[in-house]
Design a protein around this nucleic acid. Structure first.
Ligand SMILES: [Mn+2]
Ligand SMILES: [Mn+2]
Ligand SMILES: [Zn+2]
Ligand SMILES: [Zn+2]
Lengths: 149, 149
DNA sequence: CCATAAGATTAGAATAATTCTAGACTGCTT
DNA sequence: AAGCAGTCTAGAATTATTCTAATCTTATGG
């Protein structure tokens, strides 16, 4: 290991997925692969499905040495959501969650810890759902199962 | 109509339900029927089922001549919720809603207007629901149908 | 190439939603 | 009717979130 590699390891985590893959994912949706977004998208998309708050993403990015402001984290989360890379979930009045799993699914919400856990769509069956009023259309159906403890 | 009655009508709305009924409702759950709470509980419980935000309740109370601070409205909403007079609903990251209907039911959420509408529980059938993990128990199942427009 | 400009992005400052807590009030108890 | 033990209120403080002026990017063409 060279001196430069050692320093890089200390300063900043190397992305799991290749940087090129992440940059392409951003370009695909029409976003510029900036330094800040690369750091965020790496945390968000290089691991399995995650449920993150602005604060948790900011902490994780910061502790890996990324230089990003909290405002930029908020901007990125909303932009990524608008572009379909994330899905926003409101279950708690104090903070909103962003889900890296954009496929149809539902959630357990653990009230004590504030953690979310995915429920596969086939584990919840909605056998009767009312029609949307007028000429309006249903954009999404969310099922949240709240659990104590 | 006497002079006193006329002034009262201008200054402050008389409760639909009798004040005694509202005061009793508060005492039943162990809360003192203060002037502020009476005004709020009157707005909340004297009409049909409603979905209110702190701000909407504050505006309505204030415009009826009630002297209450916004902080007290928040305190009251949370206290009433803890005592089972209301139910809190988180569907929008910007504001939380308080529902005067505490019976089991679900919601339409109109994304454009930010309004909520009740769905009778028998209009939604959950034929398959996963068990809570471990020794944990399900405290509530919420179904939110998001509608455009 | 390099300059330019149009648009996109960042992040400090501002705002809005919500919570905290010191003081004011209530209703017992003697 | 004075004291006391909570209970309640609301101004102040905090926190989540948004706004916007300044900074960066990237496409263009000389
Ligand atoms: Mn807050
Ligand atoms: Mn806010
Ligand atoms: Zn999820
Ligand atoms: Zn409702």
């Amino acid at each position: 290991m060279t001196m430069l590699e050692t320093m890089a390891t200390v300063d900043q985590k190397k992305s799991e997925m290749g940087d090129a893959v992440l940059a392409d994912r951003l370009r695909e949706v029409g976003l510029r692969p900036t330094r800040q977004r690369m750091a965020l998208v790496d945390i968000l998309l290089s691991q399995g499905n995650r449920h993150m708050t602005a604060e948790s993403l900011y902490s994780e990015a910061t502790s890996q040495g990324a230089k990003v402001s909290l405002a930029t984290v908020y901007n990125a989360l909303h932009t990524f959501t608008a572009k379909g890379l994330l899905r926003e979930i409101s279950i708690d009045s104090t903070q909103s969650y962003f889900d890296t799993n954009t496929k149809e699914h539902h959630h357990f919400y653990f009230e004590k810890s504030g953690k979310l856990e995915d429920i596969e769509p086939n584990h919840v069956k909605l056998s009767r759902v009312p029609n949307a009023p007028d000429g309006m259309s249903i954009s999404r159906v969310d099922v949240v199962i709240r659990v104590d403890g």
